[in-house]
Amino acid sequence: MATIKTLLLATIALCIGLAAFIYSGAYPVGADVPHTAFTNWVLETLRDRSIERASKDIQVPDLDDPELLIEGGPDYNEMCVGCHLKPGGKESELSQGLYPAPPDLTKRASDPRRQFWAIKHGIKASGMPAWGPTHDDQRIWAMVAFLQKLPELTPQQYQILTARDEEAPDHHH
């Protein structure tokens, strides 16, 4: 009985301490002050496991269709390059200022399921918006197809594939 009472008191004290810490405003929320290692681990693990779980059943279409690259390239250049960079490009103000730092997608391609999910749903408190409400799945898959090839593109190839040629037929109706 005494053990239960002690545990109960400890739990109440912990809750009061946690609430006091939250209301104190002592935790720095500025993007220029990194999280503690523990907070960082908690948030990164939470994010990775959540995306892994949510995206595991997504069916990946054939991403080797050149039409998808032609369609996805201009969208990437207009919507993503400011944070996720381009081949031969320098770091941007956004890529340096955001916290957590957005991944440099010119370095390596990650799992297409995870990319599709992150583009469609966004990620809370990271600066990554959800493009799903305004972009259909076909258009998001085109961006994923482009992301899969992005690390191997030269700056010249990137320029050609991302230019929105006004004479080319419009892929979005």
Partner: peptide, 26 residues
């Protein structure tokens, strides 16, 4: 603002043409 989709036609005015001359060198 959130209800407006990203419309490619909005970018056509400032869009640059593909520099295909680079392809000849490839």
């Amino acid at each position: 603002l959130a209800a407006q989709a990203h419309d490619p036609s909005q970018h056509k005015d400032k869009a640059e043409k593909p520099q295909c001359a680079a392809l000849k060198d490839m």
